[in-house]
Design a binder for these strands. Structure first.
Lengths: 185, 185
DNA sequence: ACCACCATGTAAACGGTTACATGATTAC
DNA sequence: GTAATCATGTAACCGTTTACATGGTGGT
């Protein structure tokens, strides 16, 4: 799924500028889709406008730079739904964190503790973000799919964080004793 | 973390060909790091050899194509550990699955059911793969870090699969009634 | 018969990240 | 004063994916 398709999706929620689209990704997608940068969003919007999938209205502002507000066209909405029908719906993970942990026996315990702390803290932050947004999962205002992704995030992030916290001490102890044994011969 | 670094890591486990390295990624990394293809592994190994981080021995085989067995050098091992010390250890997810679910209200229930079934089945497959490899997590033969990633995978994949299974019926029902309401006016 | 496994590589295409370029406002 | 927010865009770089190219062995 490329940034163009993602932008179409963001615009199904209402008109927005490139800047606002990026914020939306950070607010709603951060726990399941690595955010795209401006370097890919702005060119994507320009291309979508050329293809007639979005329209662009320039607004002059006082005390602020001008902004370009994009709106989804009917063709854009159709193209987006078709893209959703076609994509295999893969779930890809690239976890340098787990690569680091996989090679734990090669790293000093201090470094491992740091890496685990950082990840648990990040998961706590993402959990807080989901909990803050919209209050509870029973809120009928929230679209059903959005609620699904929030609940999914809560379930999986908690499982990950709890696993890290529960196994941190043991892993550190085991790595320390193994490395001490290795040094002793 | 690029493919070159990942190849160095794979070679800390013992000498291997490019083909075997890819298999190792698929066996051990599949639930936390999207596999690299041959198109990135073979060039990566060639570059590592040029840099003196690995050595390469060509073996002629009968009834099989020749193979090139790569070994980590001392410099390669140091470079790998340094890379592990430097990387921020990020945990990136790109889930088209959750993007699809986020926009559930735009999709037919049939498609949503298919997408959820596929994902739950994939998670079951990954769980089976982890459970098959090495038997139980108390196995002392398995390096501590490898055991950590296996346990992490079991915890998080189970949480994800269980969440999908538990919410599938409700989501489908809600989407159906909402879409019926929308059609009715 | 057909598919999976073993085994290596190249080249083009594609897409995303990063760095650069600019600059006022508002809140701490 | 310092950081974050608002606001857009380009260009070079980097790395991965995909398609192409080849071909014998072993199992169902």
């Amino acid at each position: 799924m490329d940034v163009k398709t993602l932008c179409l999706g963001a615009l199904t929620r209402g008109d927005a500028t490139g800047y606002e689209i990026k914020k939306h990704f950070e607010d709603a997608f951060s726990h399941f889709y690595a955010a795209a940068g401006y370097g890919s969003i702005y060119p994507a919007l320009a291309e979508l406008a050329e293809e007639g999938l979005v329209t662009c209205t320039e607004l002059e502002q006082e005390k602020r730079p001008d902004k370009k507000v994009y709106s989804l066209t009917e063709a854009g909405r159709r193209a987006f739904v078709e893209a959703l029908m076609r994509t295999p719906g893969r779930h890809k993970i690239r976890s340098e964190f787990l690569v680091l942990m996989y090679f734990a026996h090669l790293l000093p315990p201090q470094r491992l503790a740091q890496v685990m702390d950082e990840r648990a803290a990040e998961f706590d932050g993402l959990l807080a973000q989901i909990e803050a947004c919209g209050g509870d999962l029973e809120n009928a205002e929230i679209p059903v799919g959005v609620r699904f992704t929030m609940g999914y995030g809560l379930a999986v992030l908690r499982a990950g964080r709890d696993y890290i916290r529960a196994n941190q001490g043991r892993l550190l102890a085991e790595v320390s004793t193994r490395q001490a044994e290795a040094r002793a011969g």
